[in-house]
Design a protein around this nucleic acid. Structure first.
Lengths: 191, 191
DNA sequence: CGCGACGTTGATTTGCCTCAACGATTGTGG
DNA sequence: CCACAATCGTTGAGGCAAATCAACGTCGCG
């Protein structure tokens, strides 16, 4: 149980055998069908999610009623609305399964207790946040640096498999433009 | 010495008296004049900077030669290019003092050694990264959610003091548009 | 089979940029 | 302490990337 999660943690810190049951039992295993919402706007984001398989996305709905995806998480990535999670306040985001997904959910209380029982996990999570923050710094750089067309070219060059895997309207939403414009860009790059 | 830094750490974790000299001595105090670069494109980002007073910015230069500011850090905030810092690879950013600033610099090696000597600091840094990452999630949401004009209105409503404090061309660069357009927006909101 | 979700195409509009020129303010050396 | 230059902010004309709107083809699913 929780093999993938434990293996992932062990890439970053040493895990004594006897801590594994403690850790595994702190998480809740969840199965989410495609399009199922793990978090809805207005709710407190109770969990930090580790994706074992499948894909989640973080999005919000703007004042025109359009869904804006700001992040995806695939296997071995964590996802949460950390503003809501850390302060246990209502979120303005949704978290939704893009595909059928298996995730391990860690509540804020369980996380705090785990840190108390096994402090080296602080290091693991420090590294995870550091990695996530570095990725966010890059995402922001991309947005400022490139035109929409360049953003698409870079992204599809770096993550060809992922581009194939998700519907185009979600990709457009994530990259910050309309499905129509994505269509136009793709037509150009084929010919 | 390093009073502000130690006080800041104590807001998040308990610091025994005898650890304070150890911590303080792991940092290098630096004074930076206005426009002085603490990091330049192509160098490894050797330090994680804590701002005691003044203001730093993180920026890069795009292919048209224009400086794009992606973050500011004022008193009690940390700043670094974490992609470069964590992997000790060359950075594609600059870090520059916006005003005369006093900062405490922590090298990657010193940071690792500190974690070894006093593990509770992992928790402090986990919380700092969590906070920084949450702020980045919000920044990304803002970029997707609002028009340039709305971004300016929100920002100047939330941080009126900061808007006064820095030159307009840096604010424009940070908010993602040209100084000319900022001028236009400001004219509109006055009348 | 029929409906709804998804992708495409083209016409039109617009938010914002580019470029160029000109005041205002700052600072710096003589 | 003034003169001159550099930096910074403003204004306006023109242009383009990307959005909006609307219509239509296609696929998968109940």
């Amino acid at each position: 149980m929780a093999e993938k999660l434990l293996q992932h943690i062990q890439k970053f810190i040493v895990l004594p055998e006897d801590t594994k049951p403690l850790i595994a039992s702190s998480f809740i295993e969840m199965e989410a069908k495609k399009k199922h919402n793990l978090l809805e706007n207005g709710q407190v984001c109770k969990y930090n999610y580790f994706v074992e398989s499948g894909c989640l996305r973080l999005f919000f709905i703007n004042d025109k009623g359009v869904e804006q995806t700001t992040q995806f998480a695939i296997e071995n990535w964590w996802l949460s609305d950390y503003t809501s999670f850390a302060a246990q306040q209502p979120s303005s985001f949704y978290i939704q399964a893009v595909e059928r997904s298996t995730v391990w959910a860690l509540s804020w209380q369980a996380q705090e207790q785990l840190f108390f029982q096994f402090p080296p996990l602080e290091r693991y999570f420090r590294l995870m946040y550091q990695r996530a923050y570095a990725a966010a710094q890059w995402q922001i750089k991309y947005i400022y640096d490139f035109s929409k067309e360049e953003i698409y070219q870079h992204f599809s060059a770096h993550f060809p498999g992922f581009v194939q895997r998700i519907p185009q309207y979600l990709l457009a939403s994530f990259l910050g433009f309309t499905p129509e414009y994505l269509s136009e860009i793709r037509k150009k790059s084929i010919s």
